[in-house]
């Protein structure tokens, strides 16, 4: 048998949005709506009335596997011994290259390569 219980009208949705093409998706807030379509219709005006927005996601909260409280407190801490993963562990190269009269290919240099001169 089916029943329509008014309290089912209030389904929890999490709302995410994107401010610009370069911006990552950002969490806004949560809202209550009876279904995906109405949640979407509510989302932008409830949370982004005064800001730029180019995309919106609404996700039923029940569909999100978030960390539990315990997971947050136990899985998100790391030892501070991972300089090998970052450029910090390779800083000595700067001096080496300088001895060979070459520049270091650091982040600034590498990110600048998006502009290639057309000859």
């Amino acid at each position: 048998m089916t029943a329509q219980d008014e309290s089912n009208f209030y389904k929890e949705y999490e709302v995410f949005s994107k401010r610009s093409t370069k911006a990552p998706i950002q969490h806004q807030f949560s809202l209550l709506a009876p279904n995906d379509e109405l949640a979407m219709m509510m989302a932008q005006e409830n949370f982004m009335r005064r800001e730029d927005v180019i995309d919106v996601w609404v996700v039923p909260r029940a569909h999100i596997r978030s960390m539990t409280s315990e997971e947050r407190s136990t899985w998100t801490k790391r030892l501070d011994n991972k300089s090998y993963r970052t450029t910090k562990g390779y800083g000595y190269l700067r001096k080496k290259w300088r001895e060979k009269e070459q520049g270091m290919l650091d982040e600034k240099e590498i990110m600048s390569w998006k502009e290639v001169n057309k000859s």
């Binding site: 009208f9 209030y10 809202l31 209550l32 709506a33 109405l38 219709m41 509510m42 005006e45 409830n46 009335r49």
Partner: peptide, 11 residues
């Protein structure tokens, strides 16, 4: 009918 709609409707 509900608060979220109130806000959207007002816009």
């Amino acid at each position: 009918p509900h608060i979220e709609e109130d806000v959207a409707f007002s816009s």
